[in-house]
């Protein structure tokens, strides 16, 4: 059984975000970039399924400029077997376009399980997995906190607003990961060395027959309105007094 994992390279979650002074975008120059944390969870889940003997091959795919090859190598160091880099240059792609490109890969590779992060922490869209499932006409299990695969079926526990929901889905399917699905491993140096030798194939939007038109244009990017720090109160009585008489929220 093959697993396909889609991974995105994003600004590291610990980096302070700066908006460019011309308000055209966020400033990523020289900033630390990493694999999207939800994608790391997706790769980890695939590796665990392989270690458990459920999966036989893990393919990772990432769309973007040359730099995403580095992200693919880190997924290989975690345990992915081979990679596909879709070279889209510096173009800003929409989730629909990403899903269209991924659908072509799904068509070619025929994986039983497609794993994605629930959300990229840069654009915060939370759309791609669901769109890919629609384009492939696959069932979807989003925001997964537990995945069990047996007898050609997946049982997935999902994190929903009210609590947890359990679905049983036929394979092939799309799963998007939530934070509590697993804790990704730290990679060891020998694994990083091994990853360098794993096969990495290059594709382009043209070779896949997908045109990159984005119907949602970014007009400008601004910093959010700042909240000013308030006051420190010395004790509980002062806090209650402030909340009752000054803020009037109690």
């Amino acid at each position: 059984m093959k697993i396909l994992v889609a991974i995105k390279r994003v600004l590291d979650y610990s980096v302070k975000v700066r908006v460019k002074t011309d308000h055209s975008d966020v400033d990523l120059a020289n900033a630390k970039m990493s694999m999207n944390p939800f994608c790391e969870i997706a790769v980890e889940e695939a590796v665990r399924l392989k270690e458990a003997g459920v999966a036989s091959e893990i393919i990772v795919v990432s769309i973007g400029s040359k730099a995403v090859q580095e992200t693919i190598r880190s997924a290989m160091a975690m345990g992915a077997d081979r990679g596909i880099w879709i070279d889209s240059g510096e173009a800003a792609l929409s989730p629909l376009t990403i899903a269209q490109l991924l659908a072509k890969v799904v068509q070619a590779e025929q994986p039983s399980v497609v794993l994605l992060g629930k959300q990229a922490i840069d654009s915060d869209d939370n759309q791609t997995g669901q769109m890919l499932a629609a384009l492939c006409d696959y069932p979807q299990a989003t925001f997964a906190s537990k995945v069990t695969i047996a007898d050609s079926k997946a049982t997935v526990v999902r994190e929903v607003d009210g609590g947890l929901q359990t679905l049983q889905l036929a394979l092939p399917l799309v799963v998007t990961t939530d934070l509590r699905l697993n804790e990704p491993r730290y990679v060891k140096l020998p694994d990083i060395m091994k990853a360098k030798k794993k096969p990495l194939d290059t594709q382009t939007p043209e070779s896949l027959g997908v045109s990159l038109n984005n119907s949602v244009k970014m007009i400008k990017v601004e910093p959010p309105s700042e909240r000013k720090a308030g006051i420190m109160v010395p004790d509980v009585d002062a806090l209650i007094n402030s909340l009752k008489n000054q803020a009037k929220v109690l």
């Binding site: 600004l11 302070k16 975000v17 908006v19 966020v26 929409s94 989730p95 629909l96 922490i121 840069d122 654009s123 915060d124 869209d125 939370n126 759309q127 984005n214 119907s215 949602v216 244009k217 970014m218 007009i219 400008k220 990017v221 601004e222 910093p223 959010p224």
Partner: peptide, 28 residues
């Protein structure tokens, strides 16, 4: 395409939404 998490309607086709955990606000 879809626009997620609209936080302001600028016009019938233009919207504001938070990106980067709300550390930037995009007009799309």
């Amino acid at each position: 395409n879809m626009v997620s998490d609209v936080m302001a309607v600028v016009s019938a086709d233009t919207f504001k939404r938070p990106i980067y955990a709300g550390n930037a606000i995009a007009t799309v």
